[in-house]
Structure formats: structure tokens, C-alpha cells
Design a protein around this nucleic acid. Structure first.
Length: 297
DNA sequence: TCAATCACG
DNA sequence: ACGTACGTGATTGAA
């Protein structure tokens, strides 16, 4: 509990710029191997939200004055939508086209129950599995996360691949591509080189194989939000908006929104993010406004 | 200087 | 049999 105080409460006020009255972060464009941005000095991509005390820190981020409010816009499940699109798995595509809760839909499939029979625990497990898929899952890793025997974890994973068969073949193809070419690439052709993909050390090779699965997914999400940011910048300039983009947090954009531009800005932001690229599944964006960052979620 | 820890997506 | 979920940055305390 020392972390919240030393990293945020004590440090951030010291970083308010004397001239602007704002905290200014630096975004690094060539640090993350997948093509994500990173944020330093201070890092504003890891402002707390998960604990009650942490949420109070996030609530301290406010608009510049009474004529503005904060707008937070975030992609819903962008990485799973990308894997659905890249793998062309019919079931997962169908789930996203129908707008169903993907974790609940996954739980229904994996545990073989009706959608309305999915309880909180089943959904929670299915959510962990969905995340695991993006990261390059192993039975052992899932068993640790879910605190269940490895055998049971393996059964869940086997069931997952049975219900979403093309996710499995897509993952195998990503690894095969990497082994042949020595790199993997995103939807916008950003490459991540994986020199250890054919290595003889199983631990190192396993790491590269998980990178082969994860990098195109995480990197494509980064490509998409970057394109959206460029499109939004152009629109704001053309329309002479005074609202400003403040922060990017991987799948979220935060704006200082002028009160007389609310509807126009929200339309531009939603449209630019949802249509930054055309996938075979819809991209959806959730957004909200408030007088602090916490409540804009 | 570096590993461990903890903050986020 | 092996060792194991992806990507970051800041702080802390031991070496």
C-alpha cells in the first residue's frame, strides 16, 4: 500500500508544469515490441482504477475549467475481436456480430450450458480463458490462474478449441509463419522479429511461440487506435474544435471536451474509432463524459 | 545496478 | 521431461 502514495499521491503534484498548470507525459513510439505506445515521466497509462483508494487518484484527473468535461472512449474487447477476425472462426465472429457478452458466450460453449444458465463463476473462468488465448495459453498457466488442477485446465482448453476450432488453427498458423519467416506481422504489416522461434531451448522457444500468437493481436490493436487518433486529429482540425485529445491508454482515448462541442465531438470520436479499419467483425466503442476521469468510465 | 513488486491495458 | 499466460514503467531495497 506504499505504492499508491509514493508513485501517485506524492509524485504527480510535483510534476504539474509551472507554466501550463498541467501534468505532461511523454509517449514513446519505439519502445514496445508490439507497436504499442508507452508513457513515461510520468507514466499516465497506469493510473489506478482497481481499488477503492486507487479510484480516488483517478478521480483527481479533471477538465481544464468549467467550460470543459472529460470524455473517455474505449474499445470493447478489441483484442478478441481481432483474433476472431484474423482466425475467421465462425462461432466467435457470430458472437460479436450478435453483440452478445463474449465471456458469457464462451462460458456457455465451454461448459455446455444455455447462455442464461451461465453464472458468475463460469463467466469469470471463461474470461480468464479468453485472456489466456490472447497470451498464448498453457494448461499449467491456466491451472495457476484458476487455482484448479492442470488436468481440469486442459479439459477447459480442449473444450475451448473444440468450440472455436479456427482459433486453434490460427494460433498454429501464426507459430508456423514465425518459424518459416522469423517474424510475425500485424494487420498494418508491422513486424515483430522472433529470433528464438526455432531455438533448441524449450523455455526460450516457448516464449517466442507465445509472442508469435500475441504480437499480431496486441500490435494490430495498437495499429487500429493509432489510425483512429490520426483521423480524429484531422477531424478536430477541420472542424476547428477546441476539445483536445489528452491521453491514450492502449484501447482508450481521453479528451478534454468543450461543453458546446459535446455531441459533435462524441460523433467524430465514436465514428473514427469504430471505422478506423474494416474488419469482418464490428468494432464497438463505449464512451462517457463526466467531470473527472473516474466517472467518465 | 538489478530483481522484485505493483500499477495499468 | 521440461517450465510455463502478453505488453509496459516507477519504486523499493538488496547486492
Amino acid at each position: 500500500m506504499k505504492k499508491l502514495k509514493s508513485t501517485y499521491v506524492d509524485s504527480l503534484p510535483e510534476l504539474i508544469h509551472p507554466k501550463t498548470g498541467h501534468i505532461h507525459t511523454s509517449y514513446m513510439q519505439a519502445v514496445a515490441a508490439t507497436g504499442r505506445l508507452s508513457s513515461t515521466n510520468p507514466n499516465l497509462q497506469n493510473i489506478p482504477i482497481r481499488t477503492e483508494r486507487g479510484r480516488k487518484i483517478r478521480a483527481a484527473f479533471v477538465p481544464r475549467n468549467e467550460n470543459f468535461q472529460l470524455l473517455a472512449a474505449d474499445y470493447s474487447q478489441i483484442e478478441l475481436r481481432i483474433i476472431a477476425a484474423l482466425s475467421k472462426d465462425e462461432s466467435m465472429i457470430e458472437a460479436f456480430r450478435n453483440g452478445t457478452d463474449i465471456h458469457a458466450a464462451t462460458a456457455a460453449k465451454v461448459f455446455e450450458v444455455e447462455l442464461d444458465q451461465v453464472d458468475r463463476e463460469m463467466r469469470s473462468k471463461a474470461k480468464m480463458v479468453n485472456f489466456g488465448i490472447i497470451y498464448g495459453i498453457s494448461a499449467y498457466g491456466l491451472s495457476q490462474r484458476l487455482s484448479i488442477p492442470r488436468k481440469e485446465a486442459k479439459e477447459i482448453i480442449d473444450s475451448y478449441f473444440e468450440k472455436y476450432p479456427k482459433i486453434k488453427s490460427y494460433m498454429d498458423e501464426s507459430i508456423a509463419f514465425a518459424k518459416e519467416h522469423g517474424y510475425v506481422e500485424t494487420i498494418m504489416k508491422r513486424r515483430r522479429y522472433l529470433p528464438d522461434i526455432n531455438g533448441r531451448n524449450a523455455v526460450v522457444r516457448g516464449y517466442a511461440e507465445r509472442n508469435a500468437i500475441n504480437a499480431p493481436i496486441q500490435g494490430s490493436a495498437a495499429d487500429i487506435i493509432k489510425k483512429a487518433m490520426i483521423d480524429i486529429h484531422q477531424s478536430f482540425k477541420n472542424k476547428k474544435f477546441e476539445s483536445k485529445l489528452l491521453l491514450q491508454v492502449h484501447d482508450e482515448l481521453v479528451f478534454d471536451l468543450k461543453n458546446d462541442e459535446i455531441e459533435a465531438v462524441k460523433e467524430v470520436v465514436k465514428d473514427s474509432m469504430e471505422n478506423a479499419v474494416k474488419l469482418i467483425v464490428p468494432l464497438t466503442v463505449e464512451m462517457d463524459t463526466a467531470d473527472n476521469w473516474l466517472d467518465a468510465h
